[in-house]
Design a protein around this nucleic acid. Structure first.
Lengths: 93, 93
DNA sequence: ACATCAATTCGATAATTGTCTAAATAATAA
DNA sequence: TTATTATTTAGACAATTATCGAATTGATGT
């Protein structure tokens, strides 16, 4: 869903989370340690990112590992490409 | 600003407005005619798109012509490209 | 069983947003 | 001038959101 994805990406904390996850999977705690906000707030952001498929989570014992999922970013790229000068493709809302 | 741009793109009406403007510049009225909402609402959406640079407006007598500005979409594309598999840093290719 | 740690969920609050109607601005026409 | 047309702006409302502290779940270790 483009709506939810763009909405998710509009928050700088969430974009930074995605940036952190480019290095590889990380636990919620490792991610939260990068920010001055509370764990509860980061947990909320992770849920937003997960709900639109930008990240996936996997339980590993005591921890939850979050991993970047680039396929949703690919969808955004496809949408963007329809605005390229010579692209008279149909509208993908 | 990525924040404002993603925020603007998270609304389907605004994405549709951009899609309409791919055909070329249109007046606010022509744009509004595509939607069931009021002119005031579309005017608000146009202001949001203008404020983040996704469209530009030009007064033509009685009318205001709105035009798509793809350079901001390019910025999004650049941001996305930093998430490509082999792009560990921000390379603008 | 109990305590501890990792993470989420709950409840509340302040800020933002999309939409409306109604009023205002600005340009043209009669 | 007055009227009409195009568009924005103002004011209000309900819905959504980001954030917090506190309570809760779930896994591990003593």
């Amino acid at each position: 869903m483009l709506k939810a994805t763009f909405r998710a990406l509009s928050d700088s904390t969430r974009r930074e989370i995605l940036s952190i996850l480019r290095e590889g999977p990380k636990t919620a705690g490792e991610i939260a340690a990068h920010f001055p906000t509370t764990f509860a707030t980061i947990s909320h952001h992770l849920a937003v990112l997960r709900d639109c498929g930008l990240i996936s989570d996997e339980k590993q014992g005591k921890y939850i590992l979050y991993e970047l999922n680039t396929s949703v970013l690919e969808e955004i790229a496809v949408w963007l490409s329809s605005f390229k000068k010579d692209s008279k493709k149909d509208e993908t809302l």
